[in-house]
Amino acid sequence: MDERKYNMAEEVKVFSTWSSPFALRVIWALKLKGVEFDTIHEDLSSKSPLLLQYNPIHKMVPVLVHNGKVICESLVILEYIDETWKQSPLLPEDPHQKANARFWAKFGDDKVSSIWSDVLMKEGKEQEEGVSASMENLKYLEEEIRGKKFFGGETIGLADIALGWLAYHLVIFEETLGLKLIDQEKFPSLAAWEQEFANAPIIRENWPDRDKLANLFGVLREANLGKGTPK
């Protein structure tokens, strides 16, 4: 059966918001596999009844709806996508390599993502402590990616997609604060991965607007530090 016609016959919807790196993971995965889908753009300050119905526990994006079936949480969605559409696999066949990819994807969410709360939303001594802790976690990523093009090897895989926000959101975030966490001298392999991942055509074509994202980071930071009100 022609894959394109098969995809067009399916109902595939992604509930997303423009700035979410978690929703972006789902969009990347579907694009990499050539799966056609509709995007439902959510305003998280005024969530739609459908989003609240589909994700009543977390009430957040992303949500994938496939032929009426609802799947929530980005890493869970990525595995569902990989198991449902076999082309361009995100996970390797080897059980150990598969477990390793899952480990680094989870490590990114459990440890590396704390950059947002520990660095972006802090200042002074608290921010310095957050930077120190973040650098320790980035060292583990540097060791893992050393000698490889992607965390998935020669092609983009689950861990790359899960950590993909480092290649764009973090770069803009660094510019907002005037600091550099991933630099060429301290993390040469991770910095090279950032460039390789960010410039992959399907990845590059789906980044959110740079200026708009930088403005959002600034607004969130000011509001969190008590210097303003989110708009």
Rank of each mutant, 00 (worst) to 15 (best):
D2Q: 11
E3A: 10
E10W: 03
E10S: 11
T17W: 02
T17V: 07
S19F: 09
S20I: 01
S20M: 05
P21L: 12
L24T: 08
R25F: 00
V26M: 04
W28T: 04
W28K: 01
I40W: 01
L44S: 02
L44A: 01
P49F: 05
Y54V: 05
H58A: 12
K59N: 09
V61G: 02
H66A: 03
H66C: 03
K69G: 01
I71P: 01
Y80K: 04
D82S: 06
E83N: 07
Q87V: 08
P89S: 07
P89H: 13
P92D: 06
H96E: 13
Q97H: 15
Q97S: 10
Q97K: 15
N100L: 15
F103L: 15
A105T: 07
A105D: 06
A105N: 14
F107C: 15
S113Y: 13
I115P: 01
S117H: 00
V119M: 02
M121G: 01
K122G: 03
K125G: 00
E128Y: 00
E129V: 14
E129C: 00
M135F: 08
K139R: 13
Y140E: 14
L141M: 13
E142W: 13
I145H: 10
G147N: 06
F150T: 11
G157H: 08
G178Y: 02
G178C: 02
G178S: 03
L181Q: 11
I182Q: 03
I182E: 01
I182Y: 05
D183S: 11
K186T: 12
S189P: 08
S189A: 15
F197I: 07
A198F: 01
A200C: 03
A200S: 00
P201S: 02
R204W: 03
N206Y: 05
D211S: 11
N215W: 08
G226C: 05
